[in-house]
């Protein structure tokens, strides 16, 4: 992105890129099927997307968010402006329940497909999630990660990567 010097920041950037690509596919599904037009959840592409949503979204709002909140927000608040991590955390708190709701709807759809009602809920939740997550990643990619790249030193890289691995393993 901006030639991030630390591997941990490049890892986070790659997770953002993967999430944006996934959200773009979700957006396409939502555009192809309006709120009253549920897709076939067993259809190959749709089923694959739903599986990936359940996994990636769940991991993102769990590990990725927890790592940022625990290890990066406090450092950023100290090094720059405490307002930015506060704003990003506020967004985490808005996105987390949306992701939870969407993952639950995916699980239900994997069991018995989408009903008109459950698809309507999935559609509304998915749209809101896409918008909030994209806006959030926009801020992190353009301001937060490049800012961290200036605050953190090369010696911080290994401990932070170890801490992230520990969170993922927990």
């Amino acid at each position: 992105m901006f030639n991030l010097s630390l591997e941990i920041l490049r890892d986070l950037h790659e997770e953002h890129a993967a999430m944006l690509a996934l959200l773009e596919r979700l957006e396409k599904l939502l555009a192809a099927h309006g709120p009253g037009d549920p897709p076939d959840a067993a259809d190959g592409d749709t089923a694959a997307l739903l599986d990936e949503l359940a996994t990636t979204l769940g991991e993102d709002v769990t590990y990725h968010y927890a790592f940022e909140e625990t290890h990066l927000f406090p450092r950023f608040a100290q090094g720059f402006d405490p307002g930015i991590p506060g704003m990003l955390q506020q967004e985490h708190e808005l996105i987390r329940p949306l992701a939870g709701r969407l993952v639950a709807l995916v699980a239900a759809a994997k069991e018995g497909g989408f009903s008109a009602e459950s698809w309507g809920q999935f559609h509304a939740t998915g749209r809101e999630l896409v918008e909030r997550e994209v806006f959030h990643i926009q801020k992190e990619e353009m301001g937060f990660l490049p800012g961290l790249d200036r605050i953190l030193s090369a010696e911080d890289d290994a401990p932070l990567r170890a801490a992230y691995a520990e969170i993922k393993a927990a």
Binding site: D81, E141, M142
Partner: peptide, 13 residues
């Protein structure tokens, strides 16, 4: 020196 620094300190500025 990066475009998104517009977000840096945005809260207080």
């Amino acid at each position: 020196s990066f475009p998104g620094s517009i977000l840096m300190g945005a809260q207080s500025q």
